[in-house]
């Protein structure tokens, strides 16, 4: 293919990418309406010193880390059980784990309102059994957000870990067993290290998703448990504070980039050794 026809093929896509993504993203940082770049930077500085703003950043990171840990902890066993199973149910269970990815986040998150709400399943169960006098406040807590985000991102963790486990040759595990390693020992000494790069990818995807998700903290965290995303929305749409909105957007983006960068480094190191 000639260079000129290659360019022609690229041009329309490139134009859309520029107008629909790149240029606005850059412009938002440098020139929000009626605000200077210096003001954005200043606001960013304020954010990282103001205890309220800092609390939101910290809550976002904390929730992101917890959700990531839980998703790996639950997702890897599911993936390894499914990838190593010869049962025909494994296919059905895999499909069941993937299906939620197609389903609207609003629908999935809404389920937690039914479960955690004041008249919800858990509340009714606890009061009904006479365990507590009054249903505990579950909604609008960090726990609710964590549960919601785990539900949202566990499927992603499962399929990412699944492809990582699936590409480890089962013969290696058999060889380890043949050399006298127990099943548990084989899991930790063979399967885990060999699928680690995939697990790192899964963790990165989950973390990036958790710290930027909007629906879950909005529905399950409310205004008392703000995360960066809900805060950004309120700056942009309620108080219309462009400098603050841009500053929040930058913090959020940097957070994602930072973690992706670190994980890419970790991944590369893992691949070498």
């Amino acid at each position: 293919m000639r260079a000129r026809s290659t360019l022609l093929l690229l041009l329309p896509g490139l134009a859309f990418l520029l107008v629909g993504f790149l240029l606005p993203a850059v412009a938002m940082l440098f020139a929000p309406p009626g605000v200077t770049f210096a003001q954005v930077i200043e606001r960013m500085g304020a954010m990282l010193t103001d205890p309220y703003d800092l609390g939101i950043v910290w809550r976002t990171v904390r929730i992101g880390l917890v959700v990531t840990a839980v998703c790996v902890l639950l997702g890897f066993p599911i993936a390894s059980l499914l990838a190593r199973s010869r049962s025909r149910w494994a296919g059905v269970l895999l499909a069941l784990a993937i299906f939620p990815l197609l389903l609207s986040n609003v629908v999935r998150t809404f389920g937690w309102l039914v479960v955690l709400g004041s008249n919800g399943v858990i509340g009714q169960l606890l009061t009904g059994l006479g365990l507590v006098e009054k249903a505990p406040q579950l909604l609008y807590t960090e726990l609710a957000i964590v549960l919601g985000l785990v539900q949202l991102f566990l499927p992603l963790a499962v399929i990412t870990c699944y492809s990582a486990v699936a590409q480890v040759d089962p013969g290696l595990e058999e060889a380890a067993r043949g050399l006298g390693a127990s099943r548990t020992r084989t899991f930790w000494s063979i399967l885990v290290p060999l699928s680690l790069p995939g697990v790192v990818v899964a963790a990165t995807l989950v973390f990036a998703g958790s710290v930027t998700a909007y629906t879950t903290p909005y529905l399950l965290g409310g205004s008392s448990q703000r995360m960066l995303s809900t805060q950004l929305f309120s700056y942009a749409s309620v108080t219309v504070d462009w400098a603050a909105a841009s500053a929040t957007a930058v913090v959020m983006t940097v957070l994602v980039f930072l973690v992706s960068g670190i994980s890419a480094l970790v991944g590369r190191k893992g691949a070498v050794s």
């Binding site: 066993p77 784990a97 809404f110 389920g111 899991f187």
Partner: peptide, 23 residues
């Protein structure tokens, strides 16, 4: 395989699927 792994897997499915059932 391992009871711990199985328990974690079941917990995972409960979190992924059950809330949808309640909807």
């Amino acid at each position: 395989r391992h009871p711990v792994a199985a328990a974690l897997a079941v917990a995972g499915y409960v979190i992924m699927i059950v809330p949808i059932g309640f909807v």
